[in-house]
């Protein structure tokens, strides 16, 4: 890869979106890439819509400003549709990743989105099953990897990402919870659908 890959995350404050972006960057670093991960800080309260950015590149990253034209947009919270312009600036041929119980067809219609690929997964359902809580941010990394592989831009491999997630949680959470998080990343990777 010669070009930098730029990602924008959408979520709500308190959902772990920023942490997920950092973990994705760490996973990229573990694979030998340079990365940048930073939130767009406002005066957020819990629940307010927030954005966060991740850049991944083979070269050191010089640019220090928000991503204006992302290659990929990740929407962690399905009810942001209508509240935020989710596809703003998304490159032609870019990728949109949605945590949603809805089908890709429905999402495309709701967003009037045609210019790139779309992947959907019900990460909230997986989170509720595996973690007993709707905290889907981190496991969206599984979807990022799947979509990148599909786009022949495999910057991070699944096992590296799972290892990174496990390492970041070890010592903070009980082993079975760490294992459940790792399982959730794999399930998102497996259960997502393109459409």
């Amino acid at each position: 890869m010669s070009r930098m890959y730029e990602i924008r995350w959408h979520g709500r404050a308190g959902q772990g979106v920023v942490t997920a972006g950092e973990l994705l960057g760490e996973a990229a670093m573990a694979g030998g890439s340079h990365f940048q991960s930073f939130p767009e800080y406002g005066a957020e309260r819990m629940g307010a819509p927030i954005k966060s950015y991740t850049r991944i590149s083979d070269e050191p990253i010089e640019i220090h400003s928000p991503v204006l034209e992302p290659d990929m947009v990740i929407v962690v919270n399905p009810n942001l549709i209508g509240a935020v312009d989710l596809t703003e600036g998304l490159k032609e041929g870019g990728v949109l990743l949605m945590n949603t119980p809805q089908s890709p067809d429905t999402i495309r219609k709701r967003l009037d989105y045609q210019k790139g690929a779309l992947w959907c997964v019900d990460a909230s359902a997986i989170a509720t099953e595996e973690l007993r809580r709707d905290i889907p941010s981190t496991m969206m990394i599984g979807l990022v990897i799947k979509a990148m592989e599909d786009d022949s831009r495999a910057l991070i491999d699944l096992e590296t990402a799972v290892d990174t997630v496990e390492e970041s949680l070890e010592g903070k959470l009980r082993p079975e919870v760490v294992e459940a998080n790792a399982r959730a990343v794999r399930r998102v990777y497996e259960e997502c659908v393109k459409g």
Partner: peptide, 12 residues
Amino acid sequence: QDGFITGHGVER
């Protein structure tokens, strides 16, 4: 260093 931009920006 620049607050938030590098201060809170995670990098390698």
